[in-house]
């Protein structure tokens, strides 16, 4: 069986800490980048222009309908061939691009759903006052939509924490990658339970925080 889980953790905790930080960081970059990109996709999807709307809808469907791991492989092996200026950058960037694009698809649906959740009467009232479409969006719809969007975005971050485990496949230093490091030291099973426990703690703690956030946001309703 080898050393106990506790012994392994005591010995190698800096590795797990570094992996955890990597996980949180990659997930944050993916969701932050995904949010910016996702906002554009969401507005494009809501556009009255049917072509723009169809393109962004297809974008979201493709990224949500194919496995993230496949997307990562495509980014890793195909992107350097077609985007030459990326040739000299760290391989990490390709994987992060895949994570960000993938996240943007989910975030775009979150934002679109948040906007659509605002009663149509709100925009009708604003427009009937003579408010422009853009003022209606920025002053009336978005401030109300944000209450639904923020908790969902936080949940997307939690989901992304788990998704980034795939990045270890490409030697990115995140939590799952610690398994590879320690497997070289003939520790086959102990790290897995430590990794699982850390993921669980992260998601449980963050989910609790999201619930608090949700309660706070709903107070003003």
């Amino acid at each position: 069986m080898g050393p106990s889980i506790l012994d392994v953790f005591k010995e190698y905790w800096p590795i797990f800490l570094k992996g955890t930080i990597g996980t949180l960081r990659y997930a944050f970059i993916a969701v932050a980048g995904g949010s910016v990109l996702g906002a554009f996709v969401a507005f494009a999807h809501l556009s009255k222009n049917k072509i723009i709307s169809a393109i962004s809808s297809a974008y979201a469907n493709i990224l949500r309908g194919t496995p993230l791991l496949v997307q990562m492989y495509i980014a890793y092996f195909f992107l350097p061939l077609v985007v030459p200026f990326l040739n000299n950058v760290d391989k990490e960037v390709y994987v992060l691009i895949a994570l960000t694009l993938n996240s943007s698809a989910y975030v775009s649906e979150i934002i679109r759903g948040g906007i659509k959740s605002v009663d149509i009467g709100q925009s009708e009232a604003a427009r009937s006052l003579g408010m422009s479409a853009s003022h209606t969006m920025t002053k009336i719809i978005l401030p109300q939509a944000i209450k639904n969007i923020l908790p969902a975005l936080a949940n997307e971050y939690i989901a992304m924490i788990k998704e980034t485990s795939l990045a270890g496949t490409f030697m990115l230093y995140e939590l799952m990658y610690t398994r590879t490091i320690l497997a070289n030291k003939y520790l086959s099973w102990q790290p897995l339970f430590i990794i699982a426990a850390i993921y669980l703690i992260l998601t449980v703690v963050l989910t609790t925080l999201v619930k608090v956030l949700e309660r706070r946001l709903s107070v003003s309703d």
Binding site: D119, G121, A125, P143
Partner: peptide, 29 residues
């Protein structure tokens, strides 16, 4: 929008803006 500014409308479901105070509801537009 300019025409609508001169055509006030009141709805069955009120459609007041819940995230704004009474005063802000009135002064925003």
């Amino acid at each position: 929008d300019l025409h609508r500014q001169k055509i006030g409308m009141v709805f069955q479901q009120f459609n007041v803006f819940p995230h704004l105070t009474v005063m802000e509801n009135i002064t925003l537009a």
